[in-house]
């Protein structure tokens, strides 16, 4: 049995697809290449096997995702995670929010920021810098996006450089993409052991 999770949590749930993922044994050459399956690496998540249905997109999205979240320079890793989290909370992607809140807490070795965000949402008590970052990400994620000059001024007042602001634009926008895959194509679940 499994139970769908509806509340934000840092305890990363299991992701259960709503469509049938590609079966590894039946994958095409192109799919295997995009999945980076090798004889020594045959573990592929249901999420990636689901995305393998559109192999051309998967092949370009994975390196783009990694570049935006992990390339050196610009905004810190933790602050990019905060941008990802802001978007994921607006779109209520419980799975993405869990993964990126957990990464933020681990990088910072501190759960207080994500505890506050999950407890109070946009009313959370944050530092000026985190407040400016979270608000920009949150407003950019709305449909249509509502971030404006005031949010950019707040980022500058909090001391962010152009390079950092660009990385925030990229990381929060990237989750406009990721949330529309993760939240739409599957459910975040806890597996329950039957008695």
């Amino acid at each position: 049995m499994s139970r769908i999770i509806h509340k934000f949590t840092r305890n990363v749930p299991h992701w259960q697809p709503r469509v049938t993922p590609v079966k590894l044994a039946e994958a095409t050459e192109a799919q295997l290449e995009a999945l980076q399956v090798t004889p020594s690496n045959t573990k592929v998540s249901d999420y990636v096997l689901t995305l393998a249905h559109d192999v051309e997109s998967l092949k370009v999205r994975s390196p783009l995702f990694n570049a935006i979240m992990y390339d050196p320079g610009g905004m810190s890793r933790a602050e990019r995670e905060l941008g990802a989290l802001g978007a994921s909370m607006v779109n209520r992607c419980i799975y993405c929010a869990a993964v990126h809140a957990d990464r933020h807490a681990k990088i910072e070795k501190d759960t207080s920021v994500t505890d506050a965000l999950f407890a109070k949402g946009e009313d959370a008590d944050l530092s000026d810098r985190n407040r400016a970052i979270f608000d920009f990400a949150r407003k950019s994620a709305e449909a249509p996006p509502s971030a404006g000059a005031a949010e950019v001024s707040a980022l500058r007042d909090a001391g962010l450089s152009d390079e950092e602001i660009l990385d925030l634009i990229l990381s929060s926008a990237l989750f406009g993409w990721a949330n529309r895959l993760m939240h739409v194509l599957g459910d975040p679940v806890r597996k329950e052991v039957s008695a």
Partner: peptide, 26 residues
């Protein structure tokens, strides 16, 4: 999956564009 990738990519691209315009405006 193809339909989701299309819409999801556009959500990303349109938000990068609107963010760049805000930076330029500032």
């Amino acid at each position: 999956v193809r339909l989701c990738e299309l819409v999801a990519f556009l959500a990303y691209q349109s938000r990068v564009i609107s963010g760049l315009r805000l930076m330029q405006g500032a």
